[in-house]
């Protein structure tokens, strides 16, 4: 069987009596033509396929800019209950680009996560961390309740029932020129450790933070 693959013919076209062969030639003209035509076809197809592919997957890699959005003076927000604020997620898109944030002042008695300049006001995103439906704050129960699949969160936005996989997302907040401002959204795990914004349904405890890596497209705070 090994003989079948043994090269019996010379690699030089001149030795193989190929018509028109010349000294030292190893590639026949037919073979060169075939390679050239196929190569030209690949180049021509790539010339329109690669830009189209880049156009389609480009949004994955382009980072969204963000602006701090003023929502009112600090006196508007108490420690005891949430105030509903409309926040623009995607500008220039009307109602579709807007979402709801529930905002209150930080209460050191219950907010055990370490305080810094970005969480003097607690701003919770209204999207449920099961599959992204809008949760509603029910003041009488001091709970956030999701209409779609029955997710329930306590006053701090930590899930206490139903399918949600992590606490409600939050917005960075700061006080600037006497106004409370909302920044980009971020996600938290069950210990309220901060992660860059993830989509709903992606747990961030234990192995989850490795299964659902950060994306290139989410807005981030500028390094200062």
């Amino acid at each position: 069987m090994a003989d079948r693959h043994k090269q019996t013919k010379s690699k030089y076209t001149l030795d193989r009596k190929v018509p028109g062969a010349f000294e030292g030639e190893t590639v026949t003209r037919r073979r060169l033509m075939g390679l050239g035509v196929n190569g030209a076809g690949i180049v021509a197809a790539s010339a329109f396929l690669l830009p189209a592919l880049g156009f389609a997957i480009g949004p994955i890699f382009s980072r969204e800019p963000f602006e701090w959005q003023p929502i009112g003076p600090p006196a508007d927000f108490t420690q005891d209950t949430y105030k509903t604020e409309t926040v623009t997620i995607v500008p220039g898109l009307g109602e579709v680009g807007k979402s709801t944030a529930y905002v209150r002042a930080r209460n050191p008695a219950i907010d055990t996560e370490p305080a810094d300049q970005y969480n003097q006001f607690i701003a919770l995103s209204s999207r449920c961390m099961h599959l992204g439906c809008p949760v509603r704050f029910t003041a009488a129960a001091a709970r956030f309740i999701c209409p779609c699949h029955g997710g329930v969160y306590n006053f701090r936005g930590i899930p206490v029932g139903g399918p949600p996989v992590r606490p409600l997302d939050r917005f960075y907040t700061r006080v600037n020129n006497g106004l409370v401002e909302l920044g980009p959204r971020y996600s938290v795990n069950s210990e309220l450790r901060r992660f860059s914004a993830r989509d709903p349904g992606q747990p961030l405890d234990g192995i989850g933070q490795y299964l659902y890596p950060a994306r290139f497209s989410t807005s981030v705070l500028p390094k200062n």
């Binding site: 995607v90 680009g97 992606q202 994306r215």
Partner: peptide, 15 residues
């Protein structure tokens, strides 16, 4: 996460 970014053309439901 990247698949949903591809479907939405970005991190949020956008234009």
């Amino acid at each position: 996460p990247y698949l949903s970014d591809f479907l939405r053309a970005g991190p949020e439901f956008g234009a």
